[in-house]
Nucleic acid binder design. Structure first.
Length: 279
DNA sequence: AGGGGGACCTGTGCGC
DNA sequence: TGCGCACAGGTCCCCC
């Protein structure tokens, strides 16, 4: 589920509940997710106050007044739920509720992750940017440092397919399989295209469609977030219509295009595209 | 050094 | 219905 827009949706759901609250009782139900929890994980969380809930790429960054930051990655199937005081139990499988944070405001935050590709760590807040998780990340796609000029440098002389390149978090941070497929469709660029063969005009268009796809997905997540908050408090999943992703064999949605969406595998991942309007 | 493939997990949906 | 297989929105690590 979680690419940048989904993580941003989770962040904006958690922030109003967690910011300013004290973690009164942190509990884990197993020693590890993808990696082991850090030493004394619960003790280091207990009795700390949450200063802010931020995001970098697909990482949630929960800043604490202990001068540590709780870093969380949702992997493929991670999900946070907010249980309000006296609220109903979360609509998830409790067998995979791995982390529970009880807050002083009587809300509970539950982290559920069936596949356990997610992970958490505690990192000194003043060394966050140099941590192994964040140090090599490229620019946020909505920031000014993400630009066609920067992509030009990264594409120069490289033969790797543009699909694979855009999944590389060092080039641009936060894109995943779905939004790369969608951005390439909107830009009219085939996923197999070697990056060095993408000229300035198409590169500009790609820069624009990446921003557009991410912005629209965040907007869609924000509206769906309110719906979820009203029901079971589950964050991280929302409905979204995609133009090409998971539409193999269906007609291209561009009017006047008679193409059929095709699926190919690149670097072990599915790419969906229209062979007629993506060249 | 860059890039491909497998590994890490569980759940789901499909064809037989 | 049951069974086996393919596949899933991410990242790391090994190997060429």
């Amino acid at each position: 589920m979680p690419e940048l827009p989904e993580v941003e949706t989770v962040r904006s759901g958690l922030a109003p509940v967690m910011e300013g609250a004290t973690i009164t009782n942190a509990m884990i139900n197993r020693p590890n997710l993808r990696f082991a929890f850090p030493d004394r994980f619960c003790e280091r969380l207990n009795e700390t106050q949450v200063l802010h809930v931020r995001r970098r790429a697909k990482y949630l960054l929960i800043g604490l007044d202990s001068n540590e930051t709780l870093l969380a990655h949702l992997g493929m199937s991670g999900q946070f739920s907010i249980i309000p005081p006296g609220g109903p139990p979360p609509n998830t499988n409790p067998a995979h509720d791995h982390v529970v944070l009880c807050l002083g405001n009587d809300h509970r935050i539950i982290y559920n992750d069936p596949r356990r590709f997610g992970f958490m760590d505690l990192i000194a807040s003043n060394a966050l940017d140099e941590s192994k998780f964040l140090a090599d990340l490229g620019p946020e796609p909505l920031s000014n440092s993400f630009s066609s000029a920067r992509l030009a440098e990264q594409f120069a002389g490289k033969t790797r397919p543009v699909k694979t390149a855009l999944l590389d978090q060092r080039l641009v941070a936060g894109l995943g399989n779905i939004y790369v497929c969608e951005a390439l469709f909107r830009a009219g660029i085939a996923p197999q295209t070697p990056v060095k063969r993408i000229g300035a005009v198409r590169r500009e268009r790609l820069t624009h469609t990446i921003r557009e796809v991410i912005e629209q997905a965040i907007a869609a997540g924000g509206s769906t977030l309110r719906d979820f908050a009203a029901t079971d408090g589950a964050l991280g999943y929302f409905q979204h219509r995609f133009d090409v992703y998971d539409r193999e064999g269906e007609p291209c949605l561009h009017k006047d295009c008679t193409g059929t969406i095709k699926r190919i595998v690149q670097a072990g991942r599915s790419s969906f595209y229209c062979p007629r309007c993506q060249r």
